[in-house]
Design a protein around this nucleic acid. Structure first.
Length: 926
RNA sequence: GCGGAUAUGGUGGAAUUGGUAGACACGCUAGAUUUAGGAUCUAGUGCCGUGAGGUGUGUGGGUUCGACUCCCUCUAUCCGCACCA
């Protein structure tokens, strides 16, 4: 019988589904292992060959762990809320739910064809009410919590109210918006509205007027990580800064714990480093500078606070710079400079965020006429404004030390301000000396100290003087949590007297209401404002914003543990058994979005006692993207004539993406092209050697570039097992690589050869029960060893090669011994499950291959031809003999003596003594 | 500018962690077979050289009996962050 992948794959796929082969055991005594893929957003384009890459890798690992005796959880679901379905709804009026449903069923079909070992009974969809019920519930927990900095954890707000009742807020140490101090009496005297307002300043989910990234084109705000190069990540639309009332979450309260937690994670350094940079911890001090009182007609005793990471350079301050938006600018500017300052502010406002980014070299600023006093010397320091200082970081003001900060240096050079060196070293006055090495000079009590020590003692002196204090500053901002969209989770929030109130648990989920149109209202309110009767039974308005995309994806990994539970987001028992994700596979593009938010929520749920783990994903592998290879045709300008790639330089042409499915080996199927689009029906072609050659380029796969290769076609032509092995064979998992189908026949050949090992010349299934030869065992055990090492190291590409070598060797050994082939099937079944399952059943086993044990290797069989080389060692000669455990001592000696390099060491004499040590190194005393 | 990564044949990529560089696969060349081939099989294939031989892992240096592997220098490419004080 020939290898008929179609019938084999259909048969086993059905069998796995009906037998529920991949359902984890309940009440298992086995150790657990949780393998998770980042769940996909079901887009209209369907899966392309890049999507399954990570899924195949995780599937191989999940199947491997199962054979290794683990109770494996390997689920899949859909991140179903999102922009494209909503934009499609805006264009067509079709409800996003219908679009999403259709896309999901297409995804499911495609996924099913590849033979994954998912437990589909645990599927989750973030847009399902029985899922987002719990997203809303978690939001409520956040809303009803505050962050205690003393215990360094989130706590229920009810406890805070009790403390306010008994002692006010004077002893409360919390992460909160600045609020005035009050005692218990004052708290009790507040009206309920005032109390709510106060509490809102403490809640971990809160509403505030915030500067947001507003994308007019998309009609919504965007998070920082949804913006790339100043435009929206989706669609590339311009983004502007705007003040709006928004929900936010106090992720900043967790900044330090999010950094500390990274140490416990088995993630790549690149991702950890990205998160560290994003959180952006810097140690330094805040220092207050008093306004010089002799400034003309300016109010006394105003202090400007700066943040600096270099308090040691305090004596090098030669001026101060405020952000143009700094609140004191108008108050301190002297009459003489009023006009210049306001002109400058106007000018910087016009510069968009994008210009500021692309043009960081231009130095600009303006003197305000005001001076501050140096806290130690009392010297007058001029105050400038400059757009190199950001209002949103630190205090929006910097003490400028041009000698030791390159930005201050450029500014000082440009405006001719003094440059005072206070640390030795560097290349002053040509450039600033930013490095933290050298000794302090010209710095009074700091003179002679190293930078490190000077930093410590300067902070101490500043604190002693009451001029400031040591401070740790983070770049991370609170996460804006509301979106002006339809297709997202509604907030479980209504408004009473203008203040937000959380709904009762029993009223959840708050379902998305039907709306006529999916656009914002004429008055600019979000789409939910169109919903009829969007009110509580008491007539209070519901929140009209919806949650951002990351809400549902920040906890889905917990839901899989107990996907159908109606009484809790996950039961205590399920969570304490599965704990957290052991292996997470997905792209690195979520480094500062999803992966940070999920960690934040996990820690918050941990603080509140809902989960037992502090981190969601223990180990993570980031698969590289598979890129597409686009093809181009070259249209001669203003004609319908296309010129072949090699001749295009003789004409004035425009390149047009052509569908890669009409191109083979860069040769265009001209007839298919004519039928592709009506305006090409009459196209003329200038050929070379009778063919139309296309140009090619590697780009991201996308519908609009017509370079999407669907896995369906590959499965159709070669089968799922070939696709699985080929995707692994393509190269290291983590690497970005272009898709090309050139090598796929090699993998397909290999599977056919593998099949033939079990069949005789007439194609009849036939294996022998004879004892295997030494050579055959060597091949087998080497393969077991290598494959196990490769799987553990996620080097799936090399193990595919290992299989090929193994099958090639067994073929040339004409080996058809059961005792060799059976373990080989078990090795292969993670990679090519369908063919393995079929062969396993042909071998006469009733239990499926997934219920077996991973074979163990016996190093006694791993005998190589020996290889000897000399190693010098403390006057003795040391020889290393590789993999020659079966050689006799005499043989080893002979090899050493006849080794070409031996003459050099032994000078023709015989060694006095030969000592063989277990690690295959032989000491020879001369 | 800061941080992370990568660099090996015509191509994708191996190398047991310091031990015969180029496994495996694609491609290519020759031969066999087939009416013909996108099919199958056999042999060859880093580069230079007819050959013996020489040479070779981005550049230059170092450690070592021995370096793709370790150390230093430079170069190129990719990714992330970026006037964060």
């Amino acid at each position: 019988m020939e290898y008929n992948f179609k019938s084999i794959e259909d048969k086993w796929r059905k069998n796995w589904a009906t037998e529920k082969t991949f359902k984890p055991e309940a009440n298992s005594t086995k150790p657990k292992y949780y393998v998770l893929d980042m769940f996909p957003y079901p887009s209209g384009a369907g899966l392309h060959v890049g999507h399954p890459l990570g899924y195949i890798a995780s599937d191989i690992y999940a199947r491997y762990k199962r054979l290794k005796g683990f109770n494996v959880l390997h689920p899949m679901g859909y991140d179903a809320f999102g922009l494209p379905a909503e934009q499609y709804a805006i264009q067509t009026g079709q409800h996003p739910e219908i679009t999403t449903e259709a896309n999901i069923s297409r995804y499911r079909d495609q996924l099913d064809k590849i033979g994954f070992s998912f437990d589909w009974d645990r599927e989750v969809r973030t847009s399902e009410p029985n899922y987002y019920k719990w997203t809303q519930w978690i939001f409520k927990q956040v809303f009803n919590s505050w962050y205690c900095t003393k215990e360094d954890k989130a706590k229920p707000i009810a406890g805070l109210i009790e403390r306010f009742n008994s002692e006010g807020n004077t002893t409360v140490k919390a992460v909160s918006d600045d609020t005035a101090l009050f005692n218990a009496e004052e708290w009790k005297a507040k009206t309920s509205t005032q109390k709510e307002e106060t509490l809102l300043a403490y809640r971990l989910a809160y509403r505030s007027e915030t500067m947001v990234n507003w994308c007019a084109e998309l009609g919504t705000v965007l998070a920082n990580d949804e913006i790339k190069d100043g435009v929206s990540e989706r669609g590339g639309h311009p983004v502007e800064q705007k003040r709006m009332m928004q929900w936010s979450m106090r992720i900043t309260a967790y900044a330090q714990r999010l950094i500390d937690g990274l140490k416990t994670l088995d993630w790549t350094d690149a991702i950890k480093e990205q998160q560290r940079n994003w959180i952006g911890r810097s140690e330094g001090a805040t220092i207050r500078f008093e306004l010089a009182s002799d400034a003309l007609g300016i109010e006394q005793q105003l202090e400007i606070e700066v943040f600096t990471t270099r308090p040691d350079t305090i004596f090098g301050v030669s001026y101060m710079t405020l952000a143009p938006e700094h609140e004191y600018v108008s108050r301190i500017t002297t009459d003489k400079y009023k006009e210049d300052v306001s002109n400058y502010i106007q000018k910087t406002k016009k510069r968009s965020e994008r210009d500021r980014m692309s043009d960081v070299k231009t130095v600009s600023g303006q003197f305000t006429g005001a001076y501050v006093k140096h806290p130690f010397t009392g010297t007058k320091i001029p105050v400038w404004i400059g757009d190199y200082v950001l209002a949103s970081y630190g205090t929006g003001a910097v003490m400028a030390v041009p000698a030791h900060d390159s930005r201050d240096f450029a500014f000082a050079k440009h405006y001719n301000l003094p440059i005072l060196p206070v640390v030795t070293g560097g290349n002053l006055p040509e450039e600033s000396h930013d490095g933290k090495e050298g000794k302090l000079i010209n710095s009074s009590f700091l003179d002679g100290l190293e930078v490190k020590d000077a930093t410590i003692s300067s902070i101490a002196k500043i604190e002693e003087k009451g001029a400031g204090k040591g401070k740790i500053q983070y770049r991370l901002r609170d996460a804006i949590f509301s979106r002006q969209r339809y297709w997202g989770e509604p907030f479980p929030i209504y408004y009473e007297n203008g203040l937000p109130k959380a709904m009762d648990d029993k009223d959840l989920p708050l379902r998305l209401p039907p709306v006529e149109k999916y656009l914002p209202t004429e008055s600019g309110e979000p789409p939910l404002a169109r919903a009829e009767n969007w009110k509580t039974p008491d007539g209070n308005d519901f929140e009209t914003n919806t949650m951002p995309g990351w809400a549902g994806s920040s906890w889905y990994f917990l839901r899989y543990m107990d996907a159908t539970n109606d009484g809790a987001f996950v039961s205590k028992e399920a969570q304490s058994y599965w704990k957290n994700v052991d292996l997470y596979i997905g792209g690195s593009e979520h480094a500062t979005g999803h992966l940070l938010y999920a960690r934040f929520w996990m820690k918050l749920l941990f603080d509140l006692g809902f989960v037992s783990e502090k981190e969601p994903f223990k180990k993570m592998i980031n698969q590289g993207m598979i890129l597409g290879r686009s093809n181009f045709a070259y249209r001669v300008k203003d004609t319908n004539t296309f010129v072949s790639y090699g001749l295009k330089d003789e004409y004035d042409t425009t390149a047009i993406h052509v569908d890669v499915n009409m191109v083979e080996n860069d040769v265009l199927n001209v007839n298919a092209f004519k039928g592709w689009r009506s305006d090409f029906a009459n196209a003329a072609f200038i050929l070379e050697n009778g063919d139309y050659k296309c140009g090619a380029e590697v780009e991201k796969m996308s519908k609009s570039k017509f370079n999407v290769v669907s896995p369906d076609l590959i499965v159709e032509k070669y089968g799922a097992d070939t696709l699985r092995m080929y995707e692994m064979f393509l190269g290291p998992l983590e690497q970005f690589k272009p898709w090309n189908t050139n090598g796929i026949s090699g993998v397909n050949n290999f599977l056919r050869k593998f099949w033939r090992l079990f069949h005789d010349a007439d194609g009849c299934f036939k294996v022998s029960d004879a004892k295997p030869l030494k050579e055959e065992l060597k091949t087998l055990h080497r393969t077991i060893k290598k494959v196990q090492e490769d799987v553990e190291a996620f080097s799936f590409n090399t193990s595919v090669s290992t299989f090929m070598v193994c099958v090639n060797e067994l073929t040339s050994q004409k080996c058809n011994k059961r005792s060799v082939l059976e373990p080989l099937v078990l090795l292969m079944c993670s990679y090519a499950p369908h063919i393995s399952e079929e062969l396993w059943s042909l071998l006469g086993h009733e239990d499926g291959v997934s219920y077996q044990k991973f074979p163990t290797f016996d190093s006694a069989h791993l005998v190589e031809s020996s290889h000897t080389y000399p190693v010098s060692f403390n006057g003795k000669m040391r020889f290393k003999v590789e993999l020659s455990l079966d050689l006799s001592k005499e043989e080893i000696e002979k090899q050493i003596l006849t080794h070409e390099k031996s003459a050099h060491y032994l000078n023709g004499e015989k060694p006095k003594k030969v000592i063989i040590v277990p690690n295959k190194i032989i000491n020879i005393v001369v």
